[in-house]
């Protein structure tokens, strides 16, 4: 798109052209610099903890021993969230794209987007004051009847503030992400494929299974990965809903902690080495979510090339 084919005699505005293209190039590079400096500043501020005497780190056994349980806790919370959110999110997306009456589908789409618009602290407050008390009765029942399964081992939390409750709140926050991305891809399914399946006498589900889902598989995978990224990094819902503790296999007694909540709960009072520790924990979280997001984006860009979508 070269524009300077026509040169005015006085060359008026040539400087403007240069400045404007330079400034916009600078803005683009600035974004790369920001992302790079996010990583750099975190590394610099976190570095004292890696060289520190293991005894001075919280827990007294070095950074690895400190970070491991909360990484596992983060993964547990995210796993619970995805186990619930992936099937529900995909089915809701199918509902909006293929099952709901055409005229209502748009409105339902807005409604699901509304779920995404609610600030996370409000979900946290809701989980803390509404969901957790409700869950405690279910937990008691689970501990009594299914207590022999390690994940439902008692004693059940009386407040309901456990990692399972946190996982459910996270699931509610992840569903709209998975839904809106999957919906976009379901809607891109070639109409001819769908009509061909229906013309062969397929039922609606057979049409979805044979025409829509194979087409959308990479999209679903990457939507789930992006949901995972959100669930891993979500802070407030966990900070409010979970009453933290040591790593434990039981999902219904208080215990476990996630990286993001650990930072949020302890950062305001932290100083010195504790501060570096928390920033290092943030760095670990950053690296994990970065990897998850990059894989998701790679899958999306690959599937775009192959499917002919867009």
């Amino acid at each position: 798109m070269s524009s300077n084919l026509l040169k005015t005699p006085k060359d008026r505005g040539r400087a403007g052209d240069k400045i404007f293209s330079g400034v916009s190039l600078g803005a683009g590079i600035l974004i790369l610099v920001i992302l790079f400096s996010v990583a750099m500043f975190l590394v610099v501020q976190a570095s004292p903890v890696f060289t520190a005497d293991p005894e001075t780190v919280t827990g007294g056994e070095g950074f690895a021993a400190y970070i491991f349980p909360i990484v596992v806790g983060t993964v547990i919370a995210a796993a619970i969230a995805l186990l619930i959110a992936t099937p529900v999110g995909i089915l809701v997306a199918l509902f909006i794209s293929h099952y709901a009456p055409r005229r209502l589908a748009r409105i339902f789409g807005y409604v699901v987007d509304l779920l995404a618009a609610i600030p996370s602290v409000i979900y946290g407050a809701w989980g803390y004051l509404v969901l957790a008390p409700q869950m405690s009765t279910i937990f008691t029942w689970l501990a009594e009847n299914l207590g022999w399964i390690p994940i439902f081992a008692g004693p059940a939390s009386q407040t309901g503030k456990t990692i399972l409750t946190a996982g459910i709140v996270l699931a509610v926050m992840v569903i709209p992400i998975i839904t809106s991305l999957s919906r976009e891809i379901f809607l891109q399914t070639p109409n001819l494929h769908e009509e061909a399946a229906l013309a062969m006498g397929a039922t609606r589900w057979e049409m979805v299974r044979m025409a829509v889902l194979p087409f959308a598989r990479p999209g679903i995978v990457s939507a789930t990965m992006l949901g995972l990224g959100r669930a891993l990094g979500e802070t407030m819902a966990v900070a409010l809903v979970l009453s933290p503790g040591l790593l434990s296999a039981s999902l219904i007694s208080s215990g476990n902690q996630t990286i993001a909540a650990e930072i949020a709960l302890n950062f305001p009072e932290a100083f010195g080495l504790r501060l570096s520790e928390l920033i290092a924990a943030g760095l670990v979280l950053f690296v994990i979510t970065l990897i998850v997001n990059m894989i998701a984006r790679l899958i999306i860009s690959r599937s775009k090339e192959f499917s002919g979508a867009n």
């Binding site: 974004i31 920001i34 992302l35 400096s37 996010v38 500043f41 975190l42 501020q45 992006l226 990224g229 959100r230 891993l232 990094g233 979500e234 802070t235 993001a260 930072i263 949020a264 950062f267 928390l278 920033i279 943030g282 979280l285 950053f286 979510t289 970065l290 998850v292 997001n293 990059m294 998701a296 984006r297």
Partner: peptide, 15 residues
């Protein structure tokens, strides 16, 4: 930029 949309908000705060 796509990757940046996935940065956990607390990490942005730490930065």
């Amino acid at each position: 930029v796509d990757v940046m949309t996935g940065i956990p908000s607390i990490v942005a705060g730490l930065f």
